[in-house]
Nucleic acid binder design. Structure first.
Length: 850
RNA sequence: GCCAGGGUGGCGGAAUUGGCAGACGCGCCAGACUUAGGAUCUGGUGGAGAAAUCCGUAGGGGUUCGAGUCCCCUCCCUGGCACCA
């Protein structure tokens, strides 16, 4: 047995050959307006992949799934005459490189450079047609200079509710602009991860553990930079509408934003004349049913109101709640806990005195951190009231015969003098109006979305371009950017919450009186705007040039990027943050369109051969390099697409790769014969002759199917059709050149190397001077050629298939009907029975009902 | 618990508006070529049955001349959210 299996076609030679040609000729370069080769007549198409974090492990087969899909579309669109922006870059700030630096002392930039080189080599091997001259890296100072610049724009802006827009802070009429900036500092309870030595965004905490590493996370108050994304909540919600995103993803974002309509109600505290506690409720109509109030344990008013004798209990309870991680707090949710504060508040509707409790089922971060307890009409309140023996008062009458206690639906208000007899929606409106009149509250909208915690206690991230002077923050000026982090000997966080940058004492001392901000930005910062930088990646005057932005980001829809492909794991965070930054920049007049991504597609996860998620521990990871070594990049690409629908989760199969590799080998042998000496030469069967009718038909059917399937991203069925095409020609004695030319163009986006090579071989023999395959335009099809003269018509009796017959397409209903009824098999079956009805579906079937 | 998306041969998956279920590929079976075959080519392949035929799209019910497709109920899988007041 030979040591290496013979390749079924010489992909190991032709793939590097064509990759070198593409690079040398810069074939996929997408010129910007102003460049020599720019053609203003061409329409743009911006197709974007979610750029990867270049990890040390290298590419896995999941990455190229989406990348192959976009590459097919990019190549297709070029042949359709579009100028295609199809860039790639590196989201290279992040924890792993920093962790590695802590272990080895190697600067993260070195690790990053190595990993990027590895990723790039792997991607190039697959033959993607990226605009490599637009490559960007978020850790490049020339890039993050502009990330920092955008931060300054955000810092120097506020959201004007009157215009519903972000505006320069100079337009703010109030006294203290620091209160309204879109980037601000707050003392907030954060998710502190001692193991990582950093705080994490809520989104980075999963089940009370860090998303990265799975380390425990605890609550801790810290001074942090926040971005006021909540100001944009309404627009982030409403403007989803115009986007061509999967409904599921839109829903995920809607739920994350979590808009709810209700009222803020002011409760006066007994014995504290001018102290009020505001609660948010979606059911102001149940105000008369409020028999107690609950404050979140962390609520600041608790300190103020607790009665002397209740202090020990309250203190103990608060400490216990603080120690609980989010996981425990929600996990123990089955059993409600809480303590009475000893204080009372007045229900504004009936002036009743009701007790104030504190309990951790009320969250500080949602609404006002305080609720009115309406046990009769809220499950949680009911559970709490039953446990602590608090009164339950029914104020909503269900319309049916449901039990009123615990009824949370809409009904008729009762025991509520102001709104008695009103159905819930009207009752809500009336009571909100009443509250407003009596200065006791107002209608309000609340969001689940919270402001974005933007500080990280890390080294390997963008420094925040701020200095502190006399305890106040100041923006650094634009011309000081980029702020480059200083080199360190030791990248370890101190563990006290002090970021690693604190160790660079000289760097921190900005001047005699001013110190630098030592927090860095989260990893999302760089990916919030990278799609903009791709439009004009080398511009050192502006984050993106105006002309380039207007060309590439233009659209007749609200979103700019025509197609964005990536994993669902970014459905909420990345996509929401990027939309937020985009809207701020749009409001400030820097961008053409209010939304970044018009059409979004999520590729499904690829599982291991064992149908399990790929992981090191399971040992089921497939390395693209191994697949390419054995079967070639074209087979790899085609298999990734042939597996099944792009958006579906599906298992890898090496047998499947083999099958697709066999298909490409069959394509090769359709064109090429092997000589005695073992060389390949163009088959003599290929001749410049007209295709026969059947060949014509399958060719046009293939053009139609492949075209439509690429447009709808159904790559698997496009490949099926090309297989059918090849099967139809393999045994033909003469193979018409024109059909083969057409086929190679169709195949090119999927298998660019082998199709280029075969095209070149055709050009060498047939002097029809056609140029390179990449210069070809996409073929059209003739619908006329697809029409059959005869169709097979199915004959059913009572819906069951009984026979088939050939009929001319032109046959009318009457002819088809009588042909079916006179069919001998059918005659046998219906003999002696009455034909009740005959249904004729033109060109398809006849159903005889007896 | 709530929300979303799924469930079709031994496997991955096809199937405009309801109209021949299982395209294409894998696997399997048989044959050809061959010193050889884990190469290549040809044919077959949902299940049961000798056959006529019958049964088949998670399960049950319904609408219809006709249901994988539409409606109702149940079960299972995947993803998300999870005391959001």
């Amino acid at each position: 047995m030979s040591s290496e299996r013979r390749k079924s076609y010489p992909f190991d030679q032709i793939e590097p050959k064509w990759q070198a040609i593409w690079e040398e000729r810069q074939l996929f370069h997408a010129p910007n307006p102003g460049e020599k080769s720019f053609d203003p007549a061409k329409r743009k198409f911006y197709i974007l992949d979610m750029f990867p974090y270049p990890s040390g492990a290298g590419l896995h087969v999941g990455h190229p799934e989406g990348y192959t899909a976009t590459d097919i579309i990019a190549r297709y669109k070029r042949m359709r005459g579009f100028s295609v922006l199809h860039p790639m870059g590196w989201d290279a700030f992040g924890l792993p490189a920093e962790q590695y630096a802590i272990k080895t002392g190697q600067h993260p930039a070195v690790t990053t450079r190595e990993n990027v080189a590895k990723f790039k080599r792997q991607l190039k091997r697959i033959g993607f047609s990226y605009n490599w001259q637009r490559e960007i890296n978020t850790t490049d100072p020339a890039y993050y200079k502009w990330t920092q610049w955008i931060f300054l724009q955000i810092y120097n802006s506020w959201f004007n509710p009157a215009t519903n827009k972000g505006e320069p802070i100079s337009t703010y009429p109030g006294e203290n602009p620091d209160e309204v900036r879109l980037a601000y500092v707050a003392e907030v309870s954060v998710n502190w991860c001692p193991e990582l030595g950093t705080v994490l965004a809520n989104e980075e905490v999963v089940d009370g553990k860090s998303e990265i590493g799975g380390f425990p996370v605890v609550r801790r108050p810290m001074r942090q930079w926040m971005l006021r994304i909540t100001a944009y909540a309404e627009r982030l919600l409403n403007e989803l509408e115009g986007l061509d995103w999967p409904e599921g993803i839109k829903l995920l974002q809607r739920n994350w934003i979590g808009r709810s309509e209700g009222a803020l109600i002011k409760f006066q505290i007994s014995n504290f004349k001018s102290q009020f506690i505001e609660v948010f409720t979606t059911r102001p109509d149940t105000l008369y049913g409020a028999t107690y109030m609950v404050l979140a344990p962390e609520h600041s008013v608790v300190d103020l109101i607790v009665a002397e004798e209740q202090w020990p209990d309250v203190r103990e309870y608060r400490e216990r709640a603080a120690r609980k991680s989010d996981l425990e707090r929600t996990d123990l949710a089955k059993d409600k806990t809480g303590v009475f504060t000893g204080a009372y508040t007045i229900n504004p509707a009936n002036n009743e005195r009701i007790p104030i409790w504190t309990a951790d089922y009320v969250l500080l971060g949602y609404g006002t951190g305080a609720i009115m307890g309406v046990p009769a009409h809220d499950e949680r309140d009911l559970e709490f009231a039953r446990k602590f023996d608090l009164p339950i008062r029914v104020v909503v009458q269900p319309s049916g015969d449901e039990e009123p206690i615990g009824f949370i639906g809409e009904g008729i208000a009762i025991n509520s003098p102001i709104i008695d007899g009103l159905p819930t929606p009207e009752a809500k409106k009336k009571i909100a109006h009443w509250l407003e009149q009596h200065n006791a509250g107002k209608g309000a909208i609340n969001y689940k979305l919270r402001d974005w915690l933007f500080s990280r206690q890390r080294y390997w991230g963008e420094p925040i371009p701020i200095v502190w002077r006399d305890g106040k923050h100041e923006a650094l000026s634009e011309n000081e950017l980029p702020i480059v982090p200083p080199p360190l000997d030791d990248y370890k966080p101190s563990g006290t919450g002090e970021p690693p940058l604190a160790k660079a004492k000289d760097w921190v001392r900005y001047s005699d009186k001013a110190l630098r901000e030592i927090n860095t930005m989260p990893q999302w910062a760089g990916s919030c705007w990278y799609y903009l930088r791709f439009c004009d990646p080398r511009n050192d005057e502006r984050f993106v040039g105006g002309e380039a932005e207007r060309y590439w980001m233009s659209s007749d829809k609200p979103g700019s990027v025509d197609l964005y492909v990536g994993g669902t794991e970014h459905a909420v965070l990345h996509l929401l943050y990027a939309r937020f930054w985009h809207k701020v920049l749009f409001d400030l007049g820097y961008l053409s369109k209010p939304e970044p991504f018009q059409r979004l597609v999520n590729q499904g996860i690829i599982l291991g051969e064992d149908n399990q998620k790929m992981s090191k521990s399971r040992g089921n990871i497939v390395n693209p390099d191994d697949v390419i070594d054995q079967y070639g990049a074209d087979a790899f690409r085609c298999y990734e697409m042939f597996m099944g629908p792009l958006e579906q989760m599906k298992p890898w199969s090496m047998r499947g790769v083999e099958g697709v590799a066999r298909f490409l080998a069959r394509v090769w042998r359709l064109f090429m014969d092997e000589t005695q000496a073992g060389d390949w030469e163009l088959s003599a069967r290929i001749q410049d002759v007209a295709p026969d009718k059947a060949q014509q038909k399958v060719t046009h059917a293939t053009i139609k199917k492949v075209t439509e399937d690429i447009e709808s991203l159904s790559f698997n069925t496009a490949i099926s059709q090309m297989m059918i095409f090849v099967n139809a020609f393999t045994s033909a004695e003469t193979i018409p050149l024109s059909a083969m030319r057409t086929f190679l163009i169709l195949l090119n986006p999927f298998a660019p190397h082998v199709s280029s090579e075969l095209w070149e071989n055709l050009n060498a023999k047939f002097r029809d001077a056609r140029g390179d395959i990449t210069e070809q335009s996409w073929p059209g099809y003739d619908e006329q050629l697809l029409i059959e003269d005869e169709v097979e018509i199915v004959i059913q009796i009572n819906g069951k298939l009984r026979d088939r017959m050939k009929m001319p397409v032109v046959a009318n209903e009457e002819e088809v009907k009588s042909a079916a009824l006179s069919n001998p098999k059918i005659q046998d079956r219906i003999a002696g029975r009455t034909v009740r009805n005959v249904i004729v579906v033109p060109k398809k079937l006849v159903n005889i009902v007896v």
